[in-house]
């Protein structure tokens, strides 16, 4: 968890000016990810939060290279991910894996659990025959299922169990880095805690590095070392998780934190909420300047002209806002 010391760890992933645009027809461009940069250290969990449509899933998918980048680069352990050829790509997919949001849609309903978990093992030729089976049983036990489950099909499992199968599949080829794309959003509260605890335990045991994407900020705070807040394709604020919650600087982060209801009636009664006006604007052909301008109460001339850069205002605390000095 967040108490571990990462000051000496080296960067496992560096994301530099990453851009991902989608053509949406009639010459319009949707800028899902618009020039973002950050790095993740070995053994660290970076949380990526934001509202729907802010580009957090696209970021995760572009890092894994499920999408080709429009611009910028992703450096993983010295490799430029988007420049790799087919053979090198196979090597990269062994190192970086993904856990998907919807445990109902991300498992092939016609494959048994053993084949789902074993697919990666077969592709990379890691184990054969008896050893392969042993490895699959071992993985099932690691994620809290048991070996009797190996020959069943996904529809025989509950949502939480399916998510465990998804985690076992990601772990099967011993990756260093896992992108967790909203791994708990589709689960019930009591089951969410089980899966989060499992992810934390696995990180400790195998020294994994996570990019944890979610919109549930309280859960993200719980699991992450550092958190990046995204809005309309840009990173607005990036800092250590406790610093973000105790001392948010960007007006969007402040509003986002104050919008989350806290399960404590007394706190709720005494809280003053910042309610943002309006909705998230469309990411298609956005106006120049700060992305947050249409909902910000501190918006000024400069905000409408110039896009603020992510700058370090305190050691380790980055903010993209003209008004934060």
């Amino acid at each position: 968890m967040a108490t571990k010391d990462l000051s000496n760890a080296k960067d496992l992933i560096q994301v530099k000016n990453l851009k991902k645009y989608f053509n949406v027809g009639r010459g319009s461009v949707l800028k899902a990810v618009d020039d973002i940069s950050f790095s993740i250290k070995e053994g660290e969990t970076l949380g990526l939060v934001g509202e729907s449509g802010c580009g957090k899933s696209t970021t995760g998918r572009t890092i894994i290279r499920l999408y080709e980048a429009t611009g910028g680069e992703v450096i993983f352990d010295g490799m430029n991910v988007h420049k790799l050829n087919k053979k090198e790509m196979k090597k990269y997919t062994r190192e970086a894996q993904m856990i998907f949001q919807d445990p109902y849609a991300s498992l092939n309903p016609r494959m048994t659990v053993a084949d789902i978990i074993g697919e990666g093992i077969d592709i990379h030729g890691l184990y054969k025959g008896k050893e392969r089976q042993k490895r699959i049983y071992e993985l099932l036990e690691i994620v809290g299922l048991n070996r009797e489950h190996a020959n069943r099909f996904p529809h025989e499992f509950s949502g939480g169990q399916r998510q465990r199968i998804g985690i076992a599949r990601a772990l099967a080829i011993e990756p260093k880095f896992i992108v967790c794309d909203e791994p708990i959003s589709a689960l019930d509260v009591s089951i969410q805690a089980q899966v989060v605890n499992l992810l934390i335990d696995l990180q400790k045991e195998f020294g994994l590095t996570y990019l944890f994407i979610a919109h549930d900020l309280s859960m993200v705070k719980h699991i992450s070392d550092r958190i990046a807040v995204m809005y309309l394709g840009s990173i607005m604020e990036l800092t250590e998780s406790h610093e973000l919650y105790e001392n948010p600087l960007h007006p969007y982060t402040k509003a986002l934190l104050s919008a989350i209801p806290i399960p404590d009636p007394e706190v709720e009664r005494n809280r003053k909420r910042i309610i943002l006006e309006g909705d998230v604007p469309s990411p298609i052909d956005p106006p120049p300047g700060c992305k947050f301008q249409s909902r910000c109460n501190m918006c000024d001339d400069i905000c409408r002209k110039e896009t603020p850069k992510l700058k370090e205002v305190k050691p380790g605390h980055f903010v993209a806002c003209h008004k934060v000095k």
Binding site: T3, V189, I200, S218, H242, V267
Partner: peptide, 12 residues
């Protein structure tokens, strides 16, 4: 089973 934003200690 729900983590809270306003708690400081990182309890499991």
């Amino acid at each position: 089973s729900v983590p809270r934003l306003d708690t400081k200690n990182k309890e499991r």
